[in-house]
Design a protein around this nucleic acid. Structure first.
Ligand SMILES: [Mn+2]
Ligand SMILES: [Mn+2]
Ligand SMILES: [Zn+2]
Ligand SMILES: [Zn+2]
Lengths: 131, 131
DNA sequence: CTATTTAATGCGACTATGTTGCTTTAGAAG
DNA sequence: CTTCTAAAGCAACATAGTCGCATTAAATAG
């Protein structure tokens, strides 16, 4: 057993605001480079990753790894409201290259003695806008 | 529409045999570097990737991308026999660092106008051997 | 307001992971 | 053996993500 304590000493910085802002406005899961491109101010690559990971630790964002091997970060607001839980499917459109959280819950039964800590499910294809 | 033709002119080489052999014996999904380490003969990195991708094209192997962003390759024999379809869950054990195909089928409903071409579902946690 | 503390940033170096172009090697078939 | 060309080797490249360390700048105390 391990004690887990959320770091409460977060400082509010322009970088954090900008990153969260662009993800919120886009309404999709975004990669580091997509965020960097869409943001007006110049933020270092490593910093963006650190900001994103901090947001994940704090439960503001959640991370998805698509079959392109890249990490995508999406708001967790959707998880609580629209989606049932954090275990929802994600959809990657090969045409518009966007990743979105689906309202579809991931259901599974797991063999005996297995313990699941994380779920990463991505469906790939064509989205409603690119049909 | 595009005509798709499977390349029938595959040659049998020691490399192909060795790669398929180690994957078969391990019985798990393996990454390029794991294969290279476990193989006795010295095979170039790029060659291993090309062999693996060719096997995928030919339906011998299938590829899974885990949340570590790496590609893992597993036998498709299991898909036909043990598993119901190619759309099965995969399990990544954080302790023994192995990835295996689960007999658990992936079921989902997709919103209207979405078309699914590929499914990539990985559960992470502790496997039965590491419990 | 200034001074102090330390979280956050920038920068550079570094580690994979995977791909591609091009030359060389070696299966398969006649 | 000769021919054809798939496959292998090699090197270069691209991208993704991390880490150490110096610097900057929020937060807070005084
Ligand atoms: Mn999501
Ligand atoms: Mn599988
Ligand atoms: Zn789309
Ligand atoms: Zn295990």
């Amino acid at each position: 057993m391990q004690t887990y304590r959320i770091n409460m000493k977060r400082r509010s910085t322009p970088t954090k605001e900008a990153v969260l802002d662009v993800i919120t406005k886009t309404g999709k899961a975004m990669s580091q480079d997509a965020i960097e491109k869409k943001i007006n101010i110049d933020i270092n690559r490593a910093t963006i990753y650190r900001v994103l990971n901090r947001f994940c630790e704090d439960g503001v964002l959640h991370k998805v790894v698509a079959e392109d091997g890249k990490q995508y970060f999406a708001l967790c607001l959707d998880c609580d409201n629209i989606h049932k839980s954090i275990n929802h499917f994600h959809f990657r459109c090969v045409k518009c290259e966007t990743i979105e959280c689906l309202p579809t819950e991931v259901n599974f039964s797991i063999p005996d003695k297995y313990t699941v800590q994380n779920v990463n499910c991505v469906l790939t294809g064509t989205c409603k806008d690119c049909f």
